[in-house]
Amino acid sequence: MRAHRAHICILVLLPTLLLAACSPAAGSRPTAVISYSTRNPLLTTATPMPTFTPTPAPLGSSENPLVMGLIDANPLQVQLDALEELTAQLSTFLQMSVTGKFFLDYLNLEAALQKQQVHLAWLGPVEYLLASEKGLLSSQLVSNHLGVTAYGIQYVAHKDSTLISYYDVGSGKATADAAIALAQFSGMRPCLTQAKSLAGYWIPLAYLAQNNIPTQAPVLTYTYSAAMRAVYIKGICDFTATYAIASDPRTSSEVIGDLPDALDRLPIIWISPAVIPNLAFSVSPQLPLPLTVQISDYLLQLGRSDSGRSLLSELNQYEIAGLEAMPDDAYSDLRELLAVTDVRLIDLLP
């Protein structure tokens, strides 16, 4: 009986042993082993493809022209024609592509300058100071307007006041320093035009501040003629200040028509040097110096002919009797004066 059971067990186990013998050994099975000492090429990041950077077209080419900028929200047709004519002349002279554009305001022009989309510009003193302090433009030429390239201011008071005049009518110059002449205004009240005016507001206050002369808050009259009438009738303010050197507003038709004796009744107490440059032509400092010289020389020659002066005057709607070389340091006195005030140049923009 026991032998019979043993025989049965052998028969049951035999197939199992045969199947195990035919199966591959566990140790021979292939396994995926990741080696951390050898870099797997399949896991390596691909080398980035180089990005394409287009080469800018040469400055002065048709794809990248020199651009002359001016500020005028609504330029007249005569201005547009003058700009087209001037840029065409420059294109022929330089053998380069030159175009022009009128900008709505200074801020739009400044944005174009910062992007190097404008290379040449005609600007007034406030706009130039803003552009130059950011290194966007460098002065090259200044316009001769009414016989001068810059103007100043004059302080005017009533003849019946006790103020002493430090002004020589013959030479048109002051006979004393500002510190001496203006000390008489201490504690007095001026009539000034309005807070966006250089000659009618900020420069008069600057000379007083520069010489530590306190005055009362100004009465704003908004025009030079109204300021002089206020001084003439007395009781409103003690003195006023107007632009000077280029012309004398005391002789304007608005004043002489109402106050025929204005020159006698409203004497000049003191007159400043010419510290405010006229309309100027400036270039981007990014331009090569030889190119800057070429452009400036051409415009200087243009301003020496009747047709050239007419073209420049029509372009700017400003009487230009010629152009003269003017470096950036011609603005030094103006910068020093404004530095003693709390003016923000951006607030003086139209």
Rank of each mutant, 00 (worst) to 15 (best):
H4V: 13
C9M: 11
L11T: 01
L14H: 13
P24K: 10
S28D: 14
A32C: 07
Y36N: 14
P41D: 05
A46R: 10
T53W: 00
T55L: 03
P65E: 01
L80D: 10
L80N: 11
E84W: 06
E84L: 11
E85R: 11
L90M: 02
F93R: 12
Q95T: 08
G100M: 02
A112K: 04
H119L: 00
A121I: 04
A121W: 01
L130K: 05
L130Y: 03
S132L: 06
L136S: 03
L137R: 03
S139H: 01
Q140L: 05
S143C: 07
Y151H: 15
V156E: 09
A157G: 08
Y167C: 09
V169G: 03
T175A: 08
A181K: 01
A183W: 02
G187H: 07
T193S: 13
A199P: 06
G200Y: 03
I203P: 01
I203Y: 06
P204F: 06
N211W: 00
N211Q: 03
I213A: 00
T215R: 11
A217V: 14
P218K: 07
V219D: 07
T221D: 07
T221F: 04
Y224E: 09
A226L: 02
V231E: 11
V231S: 05
I236G: 00
I236D: 01
F239S: 11
T240D: 03
A241F: 01
Y243Q: 15
I269H: 05
S272P: 14
S284M: 09
L291F: 04
Y298Q: 08
L299A: 11
S305D: 09
L312A: 10
L315Y: 10
Q317Y: 08
I320R: 03
A325S: 14
M326L: 15
D328S: 15
D329C: 09
S332Q: 12
L349S: 10
